[in-house]
């Protein structure tokens, strides 16, 4: 694995601008064919911008994130972070996965300290920073618990702290709250916004929940049914700071919701029709 990382500053240099230009991603299928997951996708995320991506299931949202993270390579087109092409896993990137990706055999504290320790920071400093982040996500007192002893929401907080401790300038989130119940989800959304305000990384937040997307983001990108390409981009001009629970009732929110849903609905129907014919 050839990954070069700048070791000096954990967040790396740069401002966190993301640009995907005409990106196509094909996967090799087991029978030797090719499956096009993304086609001619263009996406720009400005430094410090909170961008939500919505689209039907299986359209290629996760794939988009793996390209930005450097976990996968684009087949065609360019993926740029801070104006330079992504080659391998970059530094200064945080990734919150849909399913739990915290290490189940490590304690909560060790999980959060993992990033700095991997990067060669002194143990004492790493643990101190981890304690600090656990306090920020409201998990003080759970340092020595193992992930399985926590609720789903608490595990998500561990995952958030684990990513944010590296002070990423880009935070990629793949349906991070989809496994949580509705109440926990809106609490987590508010906490995420509060944490985001502190360091202001650029965020790409993938979700299938349109309300969540509008409540959180500066910009909502609607992808087409696979192969994904950008269908529409909506600017969310709701004022910040926002409270996720309450913003839903603003007239402007409702208006945006209707507009975006109008755009998304067709794609969802196309995707659904496909799976329905496949099932026959």
């Amino acid at each position: 694995m050839a990954t070069s990382r700048s070791q000096e500053s954990p967040g790396g240099s740069g401002t966190g601008a993301i640009e995907l230009r005409n990106v196509t991603k094909r996967f090799r299928t087991p029978d030797g064919g090719a499956y096009t997951a993304l086609r001619d996708l263009d996406l720009t995320v400005a430094p410090g911008e909170f961008c939500a991506v919505v689209g039907p299931t299986g359209c290629g949202k996760s794939t988009t994130l793996t390209l930005v993270a450097g976990l996968e390579r684009a087949t065609e087109g360019q993926v740029l972070v801070d104006d330079s092409p992504v080659r391998g896993i970059g530094s200064g990137i945080g990734f919150v996965f849909q399913t739990d990706a915290v290490l189940p055999w490590k304690t909560v504290l060790a999980n959060v300290a993992a990033g700095p320790l991997f990067r060669g920071e002194a143990r004492k400093d790493a643990l101190a920073a981890a304690r600090d982040w656990l306090r920020r996500v409201g998990l003080s007192g759970f340092e020595n618990h193992h992930p399985h002893q926590l609720s789903g929401g608490m595990r998500k907080r561990v995952a958030l702290a684990q990513s944010l401790i590296n002070e990423p300038r880009i935070l990629l989130m793949d349906e991070p709250f989809s496994a949580l119940d509705v109440q926990t989800r809106s609490i987590m959304s508010d906490e995420l916004l509060a944490l985001w305000e502190v360091t202001r990384p650029s965020v790409v937040f993938v979700t299938h929940d349109l309300e969540e997307a509008i409540a959180l983001a500066d910009k909502v990108v609607v992808l087409t049914a696979g192969p994904a390409t950008v269908k529409d981009v909506f600017t969310v001009d709701l004022p910040r700071p926002r409270t996720v629970q309450e913003i839903r009732f603003e007239p402007r929110f409702v208006e945006l919701y209707q507009q975006i849903w109008e755009s998304l609905r067709d794609e969802v129907q196309v995707a659904y029709a496909r799976t329905a014919t496949l099932a026959k």
Partner: peptide, 12 residues
Amino acid sequence: NLIANARILGAS
């Protein structure tokens, strides 16, 4: 996912 997560966190 565990491997991807660790690599993104900075693991060699």
